[in-house]
Amino acid sequence: MLLRLKIFRFDPEKDQGPYYQTFEVEADPMDRLLDCLNRIRWEQDPTLSFRMSCGHGVCGSDGMRINSICGLACQKLVRSYKEEVLIEPLPVFRVIKDLVVDLDSFFEKYFSIRPYFITKTIPPDTERKQFPEQHQQFEEAIRCILCACCTASCPVNQNKNTEDYVGPAALVRAFRYLFDSRDEGEEERIKLLDEKAMVWGCQTLWKCTEVCPKEIPITRQIGQIKRRIYERKNRDKTT
């Protein structure tokens, strides 16, 4: 089938401002949108820029806005679209060129939640014990591939007045460590997360959950962090 891709273009080196360019690609219904983008780059316009790496939804490189919904171009098949597809860079982030955005702020916010194990006791000679039901608590969160689709889709992050909100992706990782029975940093994690720009920035709008390519129940996990903070505060009050 013939697919038209209307693509956001911008190169600060030569363009006054962004514009849209339409390309036509002869595609198999089972082709990925990523295949179409590559064919455009190889056969029609080598200056088109976008990131990609694994090509099957594991590395998280090719997050972009496809018909106004953030997703991975390698996970979307041509057969899901009719005639024309609108392709734009992820919102929220600064555009460097075409579909390539500056993810520095994304990784800085990610780092701000202390995305590593905090332990105080010396580990045993073998593994720390963890029962399957404890592992299950955070198992869905380890599917996260840091593609930034959730944070780019979050209306709170999109709003200039609240853009310092750490965003759903960072909170998924915060959840992953907070709910890991082996982690011993609950106190500092709760203190860190109990802030307006952290977990309380979430307005429970579900956009992150809707777009997550790995089907992580993000909003629910952020809600669980909120509840954990609330419970801990109550416990501290009563003791």
Binding site: F117, P123, E127, F131, H135, F138, D180
Partner: peptide
């Protein structure tokens, strides 16, 4: 190597008795 990874926090799947 495995125990070291586990101590760094790698979330390995578990047996019913809590081992890797």
């Amino acid at each position: 190597v495995i125990y070291e990874l586990e101590h760094m926090g790698v979330p390995f799947s578990r047996t019913p008795d809590g081992k890797i």
